Simulated scan of single mutants.
Amino acid sequence: MDDTPRGKSPLGEFLSGRRAQLKPEDVGLPDYGDRRRVPGLRREELAQLAGVSVAYYTRLEQGQSLNASPQVLDALATALRLDDAERRHLHTLSGDVRQSRRRLPAERITPAIRQLMDAMGDAPVVVVGRRSDVLAWNRAGHALFAGHLSPDGPDRAATRPNTARLLFLDAHTRDLYVDWPRKARDVVGKLRQAVGEYPEDPHLASLIGELTMRSPQFATLWAEHRVRAWDVAEYRMRHPMVGELDVLQHTLAVPRGQGIRLVVTTAAPGSASQAALRLLNQTLEPGADATGTASPAVDTPVSVAPPVHP
C-alpha cells in the first residue's frame, strides 16, 4: 500500500505528519529492520492500533472523509500518543467544515479589556489576538517585551507587532529568551492550535506562509505538527536593562473574546526576578535613570530625557 502522505485537509495533514514521527518501537510494535519507504508508522499499523479499517483511515488522511466520530478521533489520538492539547486540536480539525462558516469578528480592545489590564497593576501585560498580533500592552509589558519598538505600535492595525514574527525574525526578541528553542516550539504550537480553530483566516494563513519562507527554524517546527495550549509557561529571560530573570507567563482568555488573550508576566515573591521587574517599572517613572533611581532636584532648569527603551 502506498503510504505517501496526500493530506488534502488540515485533518489529513495533521494525521500524516504525526504518524511520520512515530516509530514501531514507540508504540510497542516489532521492528524487523525492513527499509521503509516513508518515515514513521505505516497507515495499516496506525489503523490497527486505533481499531479502524485501513481503508477508512486512508480516507481520513487523504481528506476524503471529514466526519469521524468522537470515539474514532479519541482512538486515533491514543494511537498517535497525543497529549490533551493535541487531542483537542484533532477534534477541532475534524470540524473544519462547520468552523469555516463562521464570520470572524474584528479584533478590538473593549473597555472591559482595558479594565482587566488596569487590574493587573504593575505586572507586564500584553494583549494578543487569535493570530498573535499585539492588540495592546501596558507600559511594563512594552518595556519587558518590545522596548525597542514604538509604544503605540498596537494602535496601528495594519502594522501591529506580531509575537510570532518578532520571535523568529527580530534579533532583540530572540535574545530575550535564554532557551529560545523551547520558546519557539511553544509559539509554533500555539499557532498550530489557532489554525485549527480559525482555518479560514486569510491573515493567519499569510503569516504562516511568511514565517515558513523567511525562517528555516519555523519551517522545521511547523512541519512537526505539534500543538501547545495557551496556559502557564516558565521562561528565563535576558533583558538588556535588568539582566536575567525567571518569569511565569500566564495566559488568560477574554470571555467572548474570539481568541483574544491577556499574557501577564509575574515572578516569584521575594525573588531577585521580582526585584528585576520592579526595577524595570521604576525606569519608566519620569526622571528615573537606568538604575531606577530618581534624578536629584536642581535649582536650574535641566533637560530631562524620556525613559530609555532598549
Rank of each mutant, 00 (worst) to 15 (best):
T266S: 14
R101F: 09
A143L: 08
P105V: 08
V232C: 05
T159C: 05
G189T: 04
A219I: 02
G17Q: 09
R261H: 08
L66Q: 14
L191S: 01
L49E: 00
A276T: 11
S303N: 12
R261T: 05
D118G: 01
H225T: 04
R37G: 03
G17I: 03
D299P: 02
G147N: 03
T173W: 00
Q258T: 06
P255D: 07
S303E: 12
S215G: 08
L204M: 11
V298E: 13
A112C: 00
V27Q: 00
N281Q: 09
D201K: 00
I113T: 09
V187G: 01
Q21C: 02
T110H: 08
L49P: 05
D34T: 10
T283K: 04
H172D: 14
R114A: 13
L166M: 15
R238V: 13
I260N: 03
V263I: 15
P307T: 10
A164H: 02
Y32D: 06
A305H: 09
A233L: 10
R88H: 11
L280F: 03
E234K: 09
A305R: 15
A219F: 05
T265Q: 02
T293Q: 14
P307V: 11
R59K: 15
L104K: 01
R226L: 07
A223G: 13
D118F: 08
R182D: 15
R81W: 00
E44D: 15
G121W: 09
L167Y: 03
L41Y: 04
A47V: 01
L176R: 10
R88A: 10
H148L: 04
K8Y: 07
L76M: 05
R59G: 01
W137V: 03
S9Y: 06
N67Y: 07
V298N: 05
S9H: 05
G189M: 07
L211Y: 03
V232N: 12
V304I: 14
L29S: 00
G243L: 08
G40T: 02
T220G: 07
V263C: 14
Q274W: 04
A136E: 07
R98E: 14
Q62F: 02
T4M: 06
Q217H: 13
P39I: 07
A47W: 01
E197K: 06
M120R: 11
G51D: 02
R174L: 12
Q274D: 12
P154F: 04
R87H: 11
T173V: 14
A184Y: 05
V126G: 03
G292W: 05
Q99M: 09
V302W: 08
G51A: 07
A119P: 05
T78E: 11
V308W: 09
L166T: 07
T291Q: 13
L76Y: 01
N67F: 10
Q282S: 11
M117S: 04
R256D: 15
R238W: 00
A184D: 03
G141L: 08
A47F: 06
V304R: 10
H91R: 13
T163Q: 14
L279G: 13
W137A: 10
A119D: 12
R102C: 03
R131T: 10
D83P: 06
E25V: 14
R130L: 08
E44T: 01
D118S: 08
G209H: 05
T163M: 15
Q193K: 10
Q274S: 14
G243D: 02
H225Y: 15
T265V: 15
L29T: 01
T293M: 09
A85C: 10
L29C: 01
